[in-house]
Structure formats: C-alpha cells, structure tokens
C-alpha cells in the first residue's frame, strides 16, 4: 500500500478566526498522528482539510492514495439496513465484497439486517468505521472514533488502526479520549 499525507505550513481560518497557523507534518506508510486540542481548537477542520473538503488559507496538503473519512456524521441512510448502507459506499469504492468482513471487524455482524435508524450512537459510530474499513483506502482520517463507544469497542478500534498501519496504511486521528496509538506523532492544537 503506497500512501503519503503531508501538511506544509497549513493555516486554517474559520469565521475570521485563525484556528492554527503554519502547521506542518508528514506521515509515511504505517504512520499515525494523534490530533488533540480543546473543543473548537480546529481538530475537525484539520481533518476536513486533510480530506480536501476545506481549503486552507495558506499552505498545501500533499496526499497520495485514497482517503476514507470518519466524520461526525456516519453518512449511513437511516431507512436502509446497516449492511445496505455500508454496502452503498463499498459499491462506490468498488469493493462490494468487503462489507461482511468490515461489519465483522467492528463487531456489528449480528445486527447487519437492522435498519440504521434504530441503531444506538455507539453502533452508528462503529457502522461509520465499518464504512472506512470496507473502503480499502490507505489514508484513514478519523474524527473522534472512540466517542460513544464502550471499553471493549475502543480496544477494537485500536486493534483496527494497528492492523491498518501494519498493512502500510496511514491514520490521522482526532480525539480527546485516551486512545492507544503506538509510535504516533502528537499534534496539539
């Protein structure tokens, strides 16, 4: 898996307020970075810039490889079943066979046939993670992946990220919860 994610001197301004200035870091295959900071410090904005959804005021982002984004919203259709909702994205990513494995990896295979609207917050979060896993993209951008998860599920997320990195993937994780990311760079906003 060849992947690269590098920020060069990136400045982000939202609503006339500079959230961070001159931020630089680089992630090679297998690399990870933990983004920390108070609420409103710009963690989500940083991830959206990394995903190409927001344009930085100055500086540049270098990205090699497909991106999978776990944002605040799960982007799963409420009226579809969990397997269908994750499958919709997997089909777009050209990996329709990856759904079963991804749901298993996040521990949701038992409720694959349940409609998304009846899922709990934590289950929805894990459904979003399943979408990331199924995408097969080398660059993972995870915004608070552990929020709303119980302790065993947090361990599962840590294991998923570790496996992804072992396969040469990159993980950029914004979190204010303790999350075990061995050898990860620390980006404090």
């Amino acid at each position: 898996m060849s992947a690269e994610l590098a920020f060069g001197d990136v400045t982000c301004v939202r609503g006339g307020r500079a959230l961070f200035e001159g931020l630089s870091f680089a992630l090679a295959p297998g690399g990870a970075a933990r983004v920390t900071g108070a609420n409103g410090a710009g963690k989500s904005s940083l991830l959206r810039i990394a995903a190409g959804l927001l344009r930085p005021v100055s500086g540049g982002v270098q990205r090699e490889g497909a991106v999978a984004l776990l944002a605040e919203q799960a982007a799963l259709d409420g009226d579809a079943t969990l397997a269908e909702a994750v499958g919709f994205w997997a089909r777009i990513d050209g990996r329709p066979d990856a759904v079963t494995g991804a749901l298993e990896a996040v521990g949701l295979s038992a409720i694959a046939d349940a409609p998304v609207r009846i899922l709990s917050t934590g289950q929805r979060r894990r459904g979003g993670l399943a979408r990331v896993v199924a995408s097969g993209a080398p660059i993972w951008l995870l915004d608070e992946p552990a929020s709303g998860l119980d302790a065993p599920a947090v361990g599962q997320v840590e294991a998923l990220i570790a496996r992804h990195r072992a396969e040469g993937g990159i993980a950029l994780v914004a979190t204010h919860q303790p999350l075990d990311l061995p050898g990860a760079q620390e980006i404090a906003l």
Binding site: G52, L53, A68, A71, Q73, A74, A75, D77, W89, I92
Partner: peptide, 12 residues
C-alpha cells in the same frame, strides 16, 4: 448535507 453523504461523495 446533514448526515455527511455529500461530504463522503466529495472525498471520493
């Protein structure tokens, strides 16, 4: 827009 579907499409 609210549930992030358009963002996910843009990322792709």
């Amino acid at each position: 827009v609210d549930n992030g579907v358009l963002d996910q499409l843009a990322v792709r």
